[in-house]
Design a protein around this nucleic acid. Structure first.
Length: 362
RNA sequence: GCUGGGGUGGCGGAGUGGACAAUCGCAUCAGACUGUAAAUCUGACGCUCGAAAGGGCUACAUAGGUUCGAAUCCUGUCCCCAGCA
């Protein structure tokens, strides 16, 4: 049996859960009261970004990232593997990846190295509920040899991460349920033999769960094959985490494969872009996620909404749907008022919240 | 009334004889967005035929003119702005 609960900050959450991304310590355009009101129970912060941004003394004084943010829900810290891929491998900022870790060159006279150990150390200072090991992202579309290299490095880094994690736990006197979860990340791209190998090797090292890493998406469609492999070869007591998953239907499908933790930028990003998610339903009770098209998009920025005084939806209980018209939201977007993005993000998070409620009660 | 400047596509605003259906921005329309480099990005945008390549037509206030060729030069008319009366 897969775990039914997620421990956090002295409490526990019923799985599955969906956490929006508070990458740099905040959910864009929202405060945590907004987040809480949507029914969202936790957020994901990013180690790589915070590591570069935060003063560790301030962090310690605040009582970790939760204390610093003034947030009391669950918090997972992502390792930074994805950022290394998206920022460094694509050449956005300078740096390179070695077996030792990620070498960064933020300026000429500074040389920073972000190692798997450093990622763990910093996450332990963040005092999050789940710590994710630094992984070497398998570039999408890469051949078997390159993918294998990233898997080998991911496994090596996972081993080092685990050792560092245990060392710190011992030093801090953290045992049993007092220890945060430690999550391994499976790479291997589209090669199932590599996914299998990575999963098995990570299990040998020993984690509380595994994350589905990489970029299994082509033309907006997810290939679930590697998720199946991870689910198949991981012990039943492992938590399975769909990193960056995903679209509503992707979350539903992934849950069906045994995954129970999700995070994604989509609800908040789409919200900021004026794309709202709406269940094809007239009431919360009638929401049925077992049918093919259980939701659709509402594009808040279309000019036709200007004269539409109706609510965004009838079923939703978020502050946008309860209080404001399509016309007013259009107006707010039109004048580029921040409130438009806030209300839309709140609505979309409420959508995901309801979606997860339905999954929990399915 | 005089003098000077100007009238360009839904709007702003380039262009001052051929490469102009007309840079660019805005608006509009369509699409994208999945461990946030993203309050972002891409495409279309006179009418019309075509799947496309490409073709046809009408356009730079308006009426004429000069020229092989005009949004660009000349003249008349209308309108706007600034300065002077």
């Amino acid at each position: 049996m897969r775990p039914k609960y997620f421990r956090f900050n002295g409490g526990r959450l019923v799985l599955p859960v969906f956490f929006p991304d508070a990458t740099r310590g905040f959910v864009k355009t929202l405060d945590f009261l907004d987040v809480k009101k949507t029914g969202v129970q936790g957020v994901l912060v990013n180690t790589f970004h915070l590591w570069q941004l935060m003063n560790r003394k301030i962090l310690k004084k605040a009582g970790g990232i939760r204390g610093f943010m003034g947030y009391h829900g669950a918090v997972i810290s992502d390792s930074g593997g994805f950022q290394v891929m998206s920022v460094i491998k694509k050449g956005i900022s300078s740096g390179r990846i070695t077996d030792e870790g990620v070498i960064l060159n933020p300026s000429r006279n500074k040389r920073l190295i972000f190692t798997p150990e450093e990622s763990i150390r910093f996450q332990m200072e963040l005092e999050t509920d789940m710590v994710v090991v630094l992984d070497d992202f398998t570039d999408p579309g890469v051949g078997h040899k390159k993918a294998d290299e990233s898997v080998s490095r991911t496994i090596d880094w996972a081993r080092r991460s685990k050792a560092e994690f245990e060392k710190i736990c011992k030093k801090k006197g953290l045992k049993g349920d007092k220890k945060p979860y430690l999550l391994g990340v499976v790479q291997g791209g589209e090669f199932m033999d590599l996914r299998e190998k990575c999963t098995k090797e990570l299990v040998k090292i020993g984690f509380d769960g595994l994350g589905w890493g990489g970029w299994p998406i082509k033309n907006g469609k997810i290939n679930f094959e590697s998720a199946k492999v991870i689910s198949k070869f991981s012990p039943s007591n492992y938590l399975l985490y769909g990193l960056g998953i995903g679209k509503p239907e992707d979350v539903v499908n992934c849950f069906g494969l045994g995954f129970s933790i999700f995070d994604c930028v989509l609800p908040t990003r789409d919200g900021r872009h004026g794309r709202l998610y709406l269940f094809n339903s007239d009431s919360i009770d009638e929401i049925n996620i077992n049918v093919g098209d259980f939701y659709h998009f509402y594009d808040a920025k279309k000019e036709k909404n200007l004269t539409d005084n109706s609510k965004i939806s009838n079923y939703c209980d978020c502050i946008l749907c309860k209080n404001y018209s399509r016309s007013y939201l259009y107006h707010l977007f039109k004048i580029e008022n921040l409130i438009a993005m806030r209300l839309s993000s709140i609505h979309n998070l409420r959508f995901y919240s309801l979606l997860l409620d339905k999954l929990r009660n399915a």
